[in-house]
């Protein structure tokens, strides 16, 4: 396959960037999108040019490190991660635009790499459970109803890639935050911190400068893990419950 790539190149956070055009051939349709970028980078290195910086790690769709906006879609045209997107979804001769996640809370570090540490700080505010150290507890000691386990598992699928923020017209992190809150809040292990978790994670999210939710639904369409829009309504319910309880104390 031959492609015309237009890639966002930006030297560092403080230098303005621009789209740069590269023509590339010998792309196999079995390559992943990242392998296609590797091929481009090999050529750039041989030509003595700076390779395109992009994030990646597992390359099997589970770490959430990769992620670029391809032709306006976060992670490209298929509902999967960029590393799992195959070139067979493009046609010979296509022009493909590759841009970094765009959000005020995700500043560009270089080329296609953005700083997503805002997500880490949201997790730090409550995306965990406090457990005493020592021997692992007996698995049957804390029964979890099947429906709750399923609900927790659906939300636990979030890999923190940030596609939801990138797709949102408001740069909102509500889908990510709601996935994390719902995952833990429904489980007995998460119950002791149920109220502080949602209140603290939502205020951490606000402090990072993410936008608010206008229920546009772009996040859920972009999410490679199928976190659904009602996840946000479920977190709102938790937040209202916790706010009511806190105000009664």
């Amino acid at each position: 396959m031959r492609l015309t790539l237009r890639v966002w190149r930006q030297r560092d956070a403080d230098t303005p960037g621009a789209m740069v055009t590269y023509d590339i051939d010998d792309i196999s349709e079995d390559m992943s999108f990242l392998e296609m970028l590797d091929t481009l980078n090999e050529k750039l290195i041989l030509r003595g040019e700076e390779p395109v910086a992009f994030d990646h790690d597992c390359r099997e769709g589970i770490c959430g490190a990769c992620g670029v906006v391809i032709n306006g879609d976060a992670h490209g045209p298929e509902r999967t991660t960029t590393c799992q997107l195959h070139m067979r979804h493009f046609d010979d001769g296509d022009t493909v635009d590759v841009e970094p996640w765009r959000a005020g809370a995700f500043p560009v570090v270089k080329d296609l790499v953005v700083d997503r540490s805002a997500f880490d700080r949201i997790i730090g505010a409550g995306g965990y459970i406090s457990v005493p150290t020592g021997a692992a507890p007996e698995a049957h000691a804390t029964p979890v109803p099947k429906a709750d386990a399923d609900f927790a598992f659906e939300h636990a699928e979030c890999i923190g890639c940030g596609a939801c923020v990138a797709a949102c017209p408001n740069g909102s992190a509500m889908l990510f935050t709601s996935a994390k809150v719902n995952h833990l809040n429904v489980l007995p292990q998460g119950a002791p911190e149920r109220e502080t978790r949602v209140l603290d994670m939502v205020s951490a999210m606000d402090e990072e400068g993410f936008g608010g939710c206008t229920l546009a639904g772009e996040c859920a369409t972009a999410c490679p893990k199928g976190i659904a829009l009602p996840s946000i309504a479920a977190m709102n319910k938790e937040w209202l419950r916790a706010t009511r309880k806190a105000s009664r104390r």
Partner: peptide
């Protein structure tokens, strides 16, 4: 105001949203 500030730069490749 907050939402607009949270998305300061637009994508070059536009597509219709929502």
């Amino acid at each position: 105001r907050r939402d607009i500030r949270a998305r300061p730069s637009k994508y070059v490749h536009k597509r219709r949203r929502a």
